[in-house]
């Protein structure tokens, strides 16, 4: 239970932390603003958890996937709009990401919270997972901040493009899961190179959406969407961030 809680918390928290770090450097977000978005995101996750069991039965048991697909599209578009340093877009991207990921972990927490045998390892695993994610986030923040100082904000926009495009891969998997799209044939198999459930695999999955067995369709969508994201971000004219507000 301890290991499961640890892995679950890392899997679900890391994507949120990474996006928060990226957005706080691209869009000048203060720590106060980040805190407010975090609270709203947590509340939205709770609402989602409450409604999820009911929603899951809608549209021939596909209601949950439809909502998650909508969230994925929202994250991609909002992340793109964030490149114009729109705080509302950054807030929307962060809250939608929290709703998408944290709701899973909350379902897990709520389910095993009441049992005496599981409560202790659950809390311990969660604390360890949160600690690891925060540590990773702090290191990533300073690494990316030094990149911004040397090369400007453009490398971060590229990283944000890959991160946001990864949500489209989730969209494709969900669409395939409810049989709206057929993307499961013609798989590539990179499991010999790097498996998804390894340490590096998990970090790369959270950072840029690494999949060990992507379909060729997914690969094409990933490349095209990332290029479109970067091109549109240039068209939208990114304002250069001289000094990141967060952490200063």
């Amino acid at each position: 239970m301890l290991i499961t809680s640890l892995l679950m918390s890392i899997n679900q928290l890391l994507p949120v932390v990474i996006l928060a770090v990226l957005l706080s450097l691209i869009v000048p977000l203060s720590q106060r603003q980040l805190s407010i978005y975090a609270v709203i995101g947590t509340l939205m996750s709770l609402v989602f958890v409450q409604a999820a069991a009911w929603v899951s039965q809608l549209f021939d048991h596909r209601g949950l996937e439809f909502i998650q697909m909508l969230l994925c599209i929202m994250i991609f578009v909002a992340a793109l709009m964030s490149c114009q340093q729109r705080k509302m877009a950054a807030a929307l991207a962060l809250i939608a990401t929290m709703t998408l990921y944290l709701s899973h972990y909350m379902i897990y927490l709520v389910s095993f919270w009441h049992s005496k045998d599981t409560a202790e390892p659950l809390i311990l695993g969660t604390c360890l997972g949160v600690g690891i994610c925060i540590s990773f986030g702090v290191l990533l923040f300073f690494l990316l901040e030094s990149i911004v100082r040397r090369a400007g904000v453009q490398p971060l926009v590229v990283l944000l493009a890959f991160n946001a495009t990864a949500k489209l891969l989730i969209f494709l998997d969900l669409a395939s899961q409810v049989d709206l799209l057929d993307v499961t044939s013609n798989y590539l198999d990179w499991r010999g190179f790097l498996v998804e459930n390894s340490e590096l695999g998990r970090v790369l999955k959270a950072l840029v959406g690494y999949e060990a067995t992507p379909s060729k369709t997914a690969l094409w969508v990933y490349v095209i969407a990332a290029v479109v994201f970067i091109a549109l971000a240039r068209v939208l004219k990114i304002k250069k961030t001289e000094e990141p507000v967060c952490g200063s």
Binding site: S56, Q57, I107, E196, A212
Partner: peptide
Amino acid sequence: TPEEFDSFDLNREKVLYPGRTSVIYIGPL
């Protein structure tokens, strides 16, 4: 209690709520 159906091989992930039925499409494999 809920459970989450997960498969790295099939690229599938879905929460299974207690006492509920869930549907997942897979393939062609």
